[in-house]
Design a protein around this nucleic acid. Structure first.
Lengths: 227, 227
DNA sequence: TTGGAGCTTAACCCAAACTTAACATATTAA
DNA sequence: TTAATATGTTAAGTTTGGGTTAAGCTCCAA
């Protein structure tokens, strides 16, 4: 998802805060929507389905905590990140905020740079950021090197380390034939000496778990992942 | 973020400068990477993603200003701070530098004390600022890094330091597998050497206090916090 | 000084992961 | 066709890495 597709809903009754925060987030490229009270905030949230909601705690009409609870009741917004704006030291608000389902909070006074990096961090955490993460998608497989797991047509498959690394290697260049020697170097390490059937056994297990058709033997050379 | 996690890229063609600056920053605990020309500097910046880049203005191959412009074009480095090294009184360079996207400049001749405090000041905004909370909510846990406490479904749990930091690390990126090595670097510190079972024992205690299901072992790799 | 909390170590156990060996089957060269 | 070579398959070993426990160490505060 691109930045300009990300909607941030900002709810605060103080026009100054609204302006400064909206300005900073807009100039980062986000779409900013604002409301100046909790009730409108909830309505807008329903309508616009933002990815991130920044809620002031203290507001007339409906305070942030109440707004947060209401938003959390909406199933279509369960993936939305909610963060509070709160004056430093208001411990009570923080606790109540978390109980109401907030993910984080930002304390006033607001420093633009900090605000922006916090927003980025929050959005990063909840998004599948394919640019920075070690995730490879191929056929019906999603190979996630960070989490050491494979998802095959929606279903999670846990592979032991060697199998995972072997799959990971082969899938890193689909179609390329990896020589047995290369495989040993990469998965086992250059120094390690293992018997002649070890690779085959691991390939066999992958064929069993991932699907026979994915792994093609090239006799006298090695194996490749076919697409 | 801890000091030892902060990478500073230093680009200068004069070996003497490289050495003196690198020495002073390293002994402050920062990770210092060096390059002796602009082209290499840009390459290293891409690869290592430092938090701070110190660029000499006058260099063969590619000067600092050109390097700065190139770095500023890379979206993944938009949060990186860039500062120039420039001879006293070169007004022109300073101006051009800011146009190219620099954040500050340091004048030669370099005085170590001044350099170090300048670097610290620049990095300060990168570290957790007082306006940002150090509180993270995940599952039924609220992890409060300021107060070193954890709240699990409303109940406060006090964890000893190592346990807290271990939890804090794992929960910082739910799902990601942290290698034993990474854990040691982050929680114990890169230099510290401890026996092979130490991490396990701490994990065990966390499992006891926080819940077994939160911590998944990935054999031969490490541990992850599962959501 | 003593006690205790936090941390590390050591010893043991177990199961998953890995390797091997033996044989089966397939492919290629002669 | 036959022999030689390479890979497939299985199940039985082996090894490795993590789990568990309790004891020891170290620091700090009463």
């Amino acid at each position: 998802m691109k930045k300009k597709d990300i909607k941030i809903l900002l709810v605060d009754d103080e026009p100054d805060i609204l302006e400064i925060v909206a300005y900073n987030l807009s100039s980062e490229g986000y779409q900013v929507i604002t409301a100046d009270n909790g009730a409108d905030g909830v309505k807008l949230a329903k309508k616009k389905k933002p990815q991130l909601i920044i809620l002031d705690v203290m507001m007339p009409e409906m305070d942030g905590i109440e707004a947060c609870s209401q938003i959390r009741k909406l199933p279509e917004l369960e993936d939305t990140i909610i963060t509070f704006l709160t004056a430093r030291g208001e411990d009570y608000s923080q606790m109540a905020g978390f109980d109401a389902g907030a993910d984080d909070y930002i304390t006033k006074p607001i420093k633009p740079k900090v605000l922006v990096s916090k927003v980025k961090a929050l959005l990063r955490r909840f998004k599948d950021d394919t640019t920075t993460s070690n995730v490879v998608k191929i056929k019906d497989l999603i190979i996630n090197r960070d989490e050491y797991k494979v998802i095959k047509s929606g279903e999670e498959i846990i592979l032991p380390r060697k199998e995972f690394e072997l799959l990971s290697l082969l899938a890193s260049k689909p179609g390329k034939v990896f020589k047995r020697e290369d495989i040993l170097d990469n998965v086992w390490g250059a120094e390690v000496v293992v018997g002649g059937r070890t690779i085959d056994v691991h390939i066999r297990k992958l064929r069993e778990k991932i699907g026979d058709e994915c792994f093609k033997t090239v006799k006298g050379v090695g194996y490749k992942f076919v697409v």
